[in-house]
Design a protein around this nucleic acid. Structure first.
Lengths: 226, 226
DNA sequence: TTGTCGGCCGATCGCCGACAA
DNA sequence: TTGTCGGCGATCGGCCGACAA
């Protein structure tokens, strides 16, 4: 899985440590994330955190849901090990340099995007910045867009600029995508222009937690250009 | 799972031994059935067959495909055990007495049954023998039919007698059934009238073996009233 | 008796601009 | 700028009798 697309799907709040950097591993946090709350007072010999060196990082995506996650290989660091202190805070950010991140855009799906008539309302900024340039001399301006998902599968969309006032829309192909990915209002879609010019598409599922609560509507990178 | 419906789905060629009867157990046959061809010459100490007593028989159906199978508990018989010779050939036939089998009917689905317009052409014999009696004074004669599948789920069909010449058809509800069960032309459907009067419905998948061969078109009970 | 076909009608899908937030 | 709505044309599902095997 492409690291750039992975980061675009994960969102701007997610930072991944580089291989060979040092991290703290929290056994209780890992355990709770994997299988729910657990009382670690029964295991007093498990330390609350362990200093580790990152041996490997693998960017993954769930074959069913497209949700991204990572596999990391960690090794505990003995206190005598020579440190590479200056490397500790390095992170993989999807691009090489600081401002070399590829352009990407995330939008949370509205009811109209997910339910109605099978169309997707494309924010102008996304259409003009991420999508291939549209020939505005045509009437109406229209083109076919190809986008690769996290599995490398290509999706075809009809991109048209129409209506009064004019706006960008994805029409034919959009509902197929929505149905196949089982998207609902509240889920987000991510468009990304890779360095080689390819257009990529990823998704972020809305939090499905019972109750949901106000925190589930707080989206670290939702609706904003990364 | 009801033993009568199980036998109707399994077909007339399938006979199940009664509990306490004696059977021969073939290890190689069992193994090949479960996991494919195997060379038993590597295991010369495994006998080719073992005389056993049937301790239990459980009639099952795959929750996904509805295909029926059985779980049997066998115990090897020591040669010194007193035999109940007269019981050896008793089988469970789904009914109690000899001619007490419930009426059932199997039909292999045609292209028209599986693909076209969502209807099912009901052979006259099935409609008149298995289905509830239709009121032929109405014009057209029509009724709603309820049928229980192997899981106990009830399916609703519109049964109508129309056309020139007149014929029995299942219309509304049929395509839902076909899609849900993923039936294709060549699969079979079994209707059965249980002793309590309930109508039941089961399915037999067509052989999907590679090549198929002529033997896959030879259906022990297909198309015939059992 | 029943498998397949074309006709046809109604439901749904999905593209559209109007309008307003 | 863009979310939602009603309109409406195209497509599809599915019920029908005709016809022939």
């Amino acid at each position: 899985l492409d690291s750039q697309l992975w980061h675009a799907c994960a969102g701007g709040m997610i930072q991944m440590p580089m291989v060979n950097s040092k991290v703290f591993y929290f056994p209780q946090g890992h355990c709770e994330h994997a299988s729910g709350p657990m009382d670690f007072r029964n295991f007093p010999r498990v330390p609350s955190y362990i200093l580790c060196r990152v041996l490997a990082v693998k960017f993954m995506a769930d074959p069913e849901t497209d949700e991204v996650y990572a596999n990391m290989k960690l090794a505990p660091i003995t206190s005598s090990e020579p440190g590479l202190e200056e490397e500790e805070e390095r992170v993989i950010n999807g691009g090489e340099g600081q401002e070399n991140k590829p352009a990407s855009f995330a939008k949370t799906l509205t009811q109209s995007d997910a339910n109605n008539g099978g169309g997707f309302s494309v924010p102008r900024y996304c259409a003009e910045t991420i999508f291939p340039r549209l020939d505005y001399s045509a009437d109406p301006p229209v083109q076919t867009i190809l986008a690769k998902d996290v599995h490398g599968d290509t999706w075809k969309f009809r991109h048209i600029y129409r209506g009064t006032p004019r706006r960008h829309l994805l029409t034919t192909g959009w509902s197929t995508f929505v149905n196949h990915k089982k998207l609902v209002a509240g889920d987000s879609i991510v468009f990304l222009r890779a360095e080689n010019g390819d257009l990529c598409v990823g998704i972020r599922r809305a939090k499905r937690g019972i109750g949901g609560g106000p925190e589930s509507s707080w989206n670290p990178a939702g609706g904003n250009c990364v």
